[in-house]
Amino acid sequence: MEPEAPADAPAETTAPRTVIRLEGVRKSFGEDVVLDGLDLEVRKSEILVVLGRSGAGKSVTLKVICGILRPDGGTVTAFKQDVAALDERGLRHLRERFGYVFQGGALLQWLTAEENIALPLVENDLCPPGEVEGKVRAALGMVDLRDAGALYPDQMSGGMRKRVALARAVVTEPNALLYDEPTTGLDPITTASIDRLIVATRDRTGVSSIVISHDLDSAFRIADRVAMLHGGRIVACAPPGEFRRSDQDAVRRFLQADPAGEPNR
């Protein structure tokens, strides 16, 4: 484990602080072993992109981090708390420190964009009622959807739904953001705008971000570090340039889109 640096140490000598750590995590669904001794750490204010084939366990990894799924083995530590040891109340408190952008947005269909964004603030009494509207407007402004507040999810495009989902995730000012394939199914221009939003959100708030993706261009555009999930484990984790030069077999095949030796998924 990396030692914690003193708060007043000069920036250039400060070791990056780990906010989330997975050690030896295992998770199976029946006989299907998805995670098999996964080790991963997420540092403060970094954007970590986790790449992997479809069905590799990327979404499972995100859900294990925030306690939606319980691991079968190993430890998950988030903000110095053992996630697996938390009860329902403890998990609820921990999740207040996370924002999660689901793959399809996961907006509630009977609420407008504004109501979806306001939901966590209102239901959890996170701010006085008079401040909710201002926070919602600010969140919509951040994702460039100032005029779309009254729309329902079925009236929005895929890109709009993802941006509203991002607004909903950041309105509670979390310490970490989890993105589950934020650009899947989007056109290149919308993809680039979502990527810019992810980076801008981190730059503005310092939030640590874990992005699950199989979009290489997007990954190298936004990542501080790129990790490769293969065979239920992280087989490589490095800054983008170093990752591209990796001679790890699974990484090379993924970067070259070479399916040789891989099972069909």
Partner: peptide, 15 residues
């Protein structure tokens, strides 16, 4: 809601 992850989203929002 369950299959489209809206229930998971509620849990993530501590609702």
């Amino acid at each position: 809601m369950r299959v489209s992850e809206e229930i998971d989203a509620l849990e993530m929002m501590s609702i």
